[in-house]
Design a protein around this nucleic acid. Sequence first.
DNA 1: ATGAAAGCGCTAACAG
DNA 2: CTGTTAGCGCTTTCAT
Lengths: 343, 343
Amino acid sequence: MMTIKRHVTRNDVAREAGVSPAIVSYVINNGPRPVAPETYKKVLEAIERLGYKPNAIARSLRLQRSSTIGLILPDTQNPYFAEVARGVEKIAFQKGFSIILCHSDYSLEQEIRYVNVLDSERVAGVLWFPATNDPKPHQLLSESGVPVVVLDRIVRGIQAHFVVADNFRGGYIATKHLIELGHRSIGCITRPMDLYHSQERVRGYRAAFADHGIPEDLSLIVKGGFRLEDGRRAAKQLFDLKPAPTAIFAYNDFMAIGALRAANERGLRVPLDVSIIGFDDIPQSAFTVPALTTIRQPKFEMGCRGAELLIDLIDKKKHTRPVNSPLDVQLIVRESTACVNSN
Amino acid sequence: MMTIKRHVTRNDVAREAGVSPAIVSYVINNGPRPVAPETYKKVLEAIERLGYKPNAIARSLRLQRSSTIGLILPDTQNPYFAEVARGVEKIAFQKGFSIILCHSDYSLEQEIRYVNVLDSERVAGVLWFPATNDPKPHQLLSESGVPVVVLDRIVRGIQAHFVVADNFRGGYIATKHLIELGHRSIGCITRPMDLYHSQERVRGYRAAFADHGIPEDLSLIVKGGFRLEDGRRAAKQLFDLKPAPTAIFAYNDFMAIGALRAANERGLRVPLDVSIIGFDDIPQSAFTVPALTTIRQPKFEMGCRGAELLIDLIDKKKHTRPVNSPLDVQLIVRESTACVNSN
DNA sequence: ATGAAAGCGCTAACAG
DNA sequence: CTGTTAGCGCTTTCAT
């Protein structure tokens, strides 16, 4: 038989230490007023003795602001998002914030439901990995005065803080790598060009040719989807060309694996007859598919940078009067640490 | 220039609707006291008009209990944990709970740090995926009266609620599958036997032989680590036997991939010369490594069951007086939906 | 069926 | 340097 203890409160500590409750707060928060060293010690001892843990909920209510950050993403099971989440959590923990995990499941409706939950929970801020191109979730949060940072996607039509990888640089590095291997005819398998990421990666691909003084052949750029099968189909199409390219730069590793299969079906050896390179959406791809070379995307770093930026915004908000503040617009594109990661 | 609105409060709604604040609560919570239909309608309209969202923090403070659940796991980047997390989040959202994501990073110290955070946040309960065999995190939470459900691991020396997959059944199914393919000599690559999971899987392996009237050969059981290299080494050892086994049951797919490499190095074709099967720790393994057959582990389902159980405990606690309650001990081992998942 | 009011644990302004 | 106290927004008991 054990009695479940009531939580120890600040008043308990004050009584135990023989001081007023306010002093206990000053000790815990290291301010805003000074405390005599002796008193300080007494309080610390009382806290220790009673095992006091400040009630974060009461604190949040009083401060009108919790120390919790919402993280909305389509699906943690996708290793891509998982890696971003890891970076977010790391920084958040360091700075004393907790993460509320919200799966939008690639659905705008679910995003909106979670936005309402987060609003009710009075989160200090939100990191948003958009599931669609609809800016609604951002609007709703902004209207409630919740700072938002958008991760890895450019949603058009809103003024917001974005943290995205340097896709241009990635495409450039990939192509440069292939050129330096001696390739001159390099196919490019991309997504539909309406996406910001596609545009940037292809722009990098083309810039590499320009910088190396190699003439471009636009027929080598094939627009596909984004799944393995799409890559396979696109690669087949490239291998049908005469002469066929000796290297392929694919939008991501799913399509790169598809291209690899297409190459195998032709009896081509990778990377002896043809070199294939793609961006890593699956971190393990380079590991389980040895013939593949990948461009590492700075997912973890993006998560970190996003969290840092968001916490900056939160702190800034704390110190400014929350009136008549125009939307603080800023487009942040961080340098990608993209690098060739071959094994 | 837009003015950031103060959050609408219950009192605002009461004033707008011309009723007392209590009524607003009764409407929101559907109780505990009845409200006249007319009044009810007036309140709903006022809520709608003002866009009122109840403040979950104030609610939590008053109720001495938040609607938040802590999820402690080693690392979301591991697809195994990610899938469990997905199940947890699904159920939690359904039942109106938010998830606070805590990475222990395989470290007891970090687990304990997060336990303290969760305790401060006055979470309603915790789902714990232990990083080590140390029961300390569970003890700390129990002492604070926080319900805990332990996921996928049996931590010895504590009375707790466990939700684990049916590893015995998985080992049995895997071996039965190989036997039914015509194999009689089946190697078993396992982890050190101190782990509950290893023991159970090997027990299933042996039971399959017994049930099919096939004599066992204990020299076919090789204890290894759990990484790819360990599997490769163990498989080499098995292939050195005369006669060598024609099939291998590996503890997980990392080791199965290792075994596959060892087979390739011997010039054996998989699955023509030798069949290899393992538990899926990486969901994509069967996808990226076509020759592999895997046993699907019910990770998602475990997450769901764990969350359901935890929420039951939370509800039960709510309705009982929190005094003199002995630890409510229960060992729950759910049937695995393990099934052969070959492609 | 409704209103009034206490109080959850904390921060910080006010008063010594 | 320290004590006292007013709320933060809500639930619920006590009145009516």
